[in-house]
Design a protein around this nucleic acid. Structure first.
Length: 598
RNA sequence: GGAGCUGUAGUGUAGCGGUUAACAUGUCGGCCUGUCACGCCGAAGAUCGCGGGUUCGAUUCCCGUCAGCUCCGCCA
């Protein structure tokens, strides 16, 4: 490298550089050896350009190039030249030019990679994760991380402009009840005691409000030891924000401005403002989800009133037991076969539905195994309610409201995809507001907070906390994008009495509340401003902006579904000495149980 | 904790109760001065994820297991 200095990025060369002598450094993407002439596509972060080795230009470079292989790291210098007429490559941004190489330095050799370093590879994810550093060489993976950088950079600048301060909070923190399972870190200095990695910086950011910082944000790494999904990793990044002296409208306005700015700057897209809002109750009722995909219509219709007194016992008994019956109209699917309907039933079963009733509005008349239980008037009323037409398939689920919503909500999304009702280019933002504050946990026999225990109830619902807590609505709001929850927040409780009241509703004794959250309760006694905030899942947001199906594709080093890192082989056992220092002993629970025992 | 899908040369796939396990691509060698999915000739490359069972015989069928993925539960 002595005396060598890169002058341009490979992907940056254009006709305007004609005649310039350039020095490029990058990887061999492809080599085409014609015997007397060698072409190499040289790739770096900026893109690719064709470089040419010819004995007429440099015998030395040409012969050296004969030994070059894929993914070798090269430094070349030579003149940018217009390609001979007829040999331009319109598929490449640099396709009008090439570099004729006068000197070549092989900076490093490379083994043949285990998979192709190109766009759109369909390789076993096992391999991609094991060789993540090679996977990340692929241009579309680089684009994802570059996009991620531009998103964080744009947001940082925006929030700075609006008077926000970026403040870091600890990673070694206190384990608190409620919420996800914690990742624990043993304390060497305090044997038998543990830190928890933060599930979010929630309490710290509220305390920063007590401290008077007024506007805070942070790109915060969060940890939750729960099972993974395509959009859930054990560690992930939140854009975390908190503000004092604000109300819900202030936050919504700021966030909409922020996303409009972000999409304008990064994607060149103008988002329509204001973002639509719908209540939790309406979202659940119409779409069976608290994060509905609003890129397509398909609404659920409640037919409970029409069927509760009908002769169909399955429906009637569910209604009598306090359940409900809802229907989904699937346009143009009257041709569905028995097998396809059985598969749909199985699909609904995943979400707990014990069955799936259907009606087919065929041109030759109604086909349905349940129609014989209804009068003609009842059937007409149902068809009217669903606004169904000939050629439609109608699907019904009868169950507890929660099961009906989940099953039909999932079917709605499924048909949105199957019927191609979704515009993949669209970014459909909306707010879901007025969440309930609490729900009842049947397993634990107590109330649990839907958002989190620091969320304030709506002022007009405060009296309900003492009488009918489940009816109280929270000052909470989620931001959804294309059926994905990308963020959520709330106005917080900011005085000790209200916070203690909520803890007690959640079933904490005063002593427990003091032990777990005493520092917060105490802080609230020293002049706490009204405050609230919101946090966004950065990985999910970037995933959607990049058009990817999993957040793994926009994270540099993600974990597998079983929360391990195939590249480093983490987690792994540690030395006995390390355990000793921590005063820890592994319970030798047999992992390798003998086979074939009875 | 549960359900489903996948696992065959380096990679992506095909295949079948008895095969020399096929194809493409990559790799290696030779030829080739305008290619860009370069072309042509040749070669090497497989413990058919692992273990057990059924069978005269299993890569193929069955059971188990491991790994990856998708989903349910879980994720304030």
């Amino acid at each position: 490298m002595e005396g060598l200095s890169r002058s341009h990025g490979c992907g940056d060369l254009r006709m305007t550089h004609l005649g310039e002598t350039v020095t490029l450094m990058g990887w061999v993407s492809k080599r085409r050896d014609h015997g007397g002439l060698i072409f190499v596509d040289l790739r770096d972060r900026s893109g690719k350009v064709q470089i040419v080795f010819s004995p007429e230009i440099s015998k030395e470079a040409f012969h050296l190039a004969e030994s070059v292989r894929g993914e070798y790291v090269l430094a070349v210098s030579g003149e940018v030249r217009q390609r001979p007429e007829g040999t331009e490559n319109p598929a490449l941004p640099t396709g009008e030019v090439e570099v004729e190489v006068r000197s070549l330095t092989v900076l490093n050799q490379a083994k043949t990679p285990p998979f192709y370093i190109t766009e759109n590879v369909d390789v076993d994810e096992n391999l991609r994760l094991r060789y993540r550093y090679l996977d990340l060489r692929r241009p579309d993976m680089q684009e994802g991380l570059i996009l991620r950088h531009r998103v964080t950079k744009t947001i940082r600048d925006f929030l700075d402009e609006r008077g926000f301060l970026e403040i870091e909070t600890p990673m070694l923190t206190k384990s608190t009840p409620e919420g996800a399972r914690d990742y624990l870190v043993p304390s060497r200095v305090h044997p038998g005691e543990f830190f928890a990695l933060p599930q979010s910086p929630q309490l710290y950011k509220q305390l920063l409000m007590v401290s008077g910082f007024e506007k805070y944000f942070q790109f915060a790494r969060c940890f939750r030891d729960e099972d993974l999904r395509a959009d859930r990793q054990p560690e992930f990044t939140q854009l975390d924000m908190e503000m004092s002296f604000i109300n819900r409208e202030d936050i919504i306005q700021l966030v909409e401005d922020m996303f409009c700015h972000l999409f304008r700057q990064v994607m060149g897209i103008e988002l329509p403002q204001p973002f639509p809002r719908l209540s939790y109750a309406k979202a659940m009722d119409k779409y069976g989800s608290d994060k509905p995909d609003l890129r397509f219509d398909l609404e659920l219709k409640d037919v409970t009133d029409l069927v509760k007194d009908s002769g169909f016992k399955v429906f009637a008994s569910v209604c009598a037991a306090g359940g409900q019956v809802k229907g989904l109209r699937v346009p143009g699917c009257a041709h569905y076969s028995r097998k396809e309907l059985d598969d749909l039933t199985k699909f609904a079963g995943i979400y707990g539905a014990k069955g799936l009733a259907w009606m087919i509005l065929a041109p030759e008349g109604l086909k349905s195994p349940i129609s014989k239980f209804f009068t003609e008037e009842e059937i007409d009323a149902i068809i009217n309610r669903l606004e169904a037409e000939t050629g439609d398939l109608l699907l019904f689920v009868a169950d507890k409201p929660q099961v009906v919503a989940q099953a039909l909500g999932a079917l709605r999304v499924e048909f949105g995809k199957r019927l191609n009702l979704i515009d993949p280019e669209e970014f459909n933002f909306a707010w879901v507001i007025d969440f309930p504050l609490l729900e009842y946990d049947e397993d634990e026999k107590r109330y649990v907070a839907i958002h989190h225990p620091f969320t304030s109830a709506k002022e007009e619902d405060l009296p309900l906390l003492a009488t009918e807590p489940l009816k109280a609505r929270a000052q909470a709001y989620d931001l959804i994008l294309n059926g994905v929850e990308v963020g959520g927040g709330s106005i917080r409780i900011h005085n000790r009495q209200n916070q203690e009241q909520l803890f007690s509703l959640l079933g904490f004794s005063q002593a427990e509340a003091q032990e777990k959250f005493g520092f917060l309760l105490e802080a609230f006694e020293y002049g706490t401003p009204p405050h609230g905030g919101i946090a966004f899942g950065l990985d999910r947001l970037v995933m959607l902006m990049a058009g990817k199906d999993t957040i793994r594709d926009v994270m540099a080093f993600p974990k597998t579904q079983s929360a391990s890192d195939l590249m480093t082989k983490a987690p792994s056992p540690v030395a006995e000495q390390q355990l000793k220092e921590l005063k820890l002993r592994v319970d030798e629970k047999k992992t390798a149980v003998a086979q074939g025992e009875d």
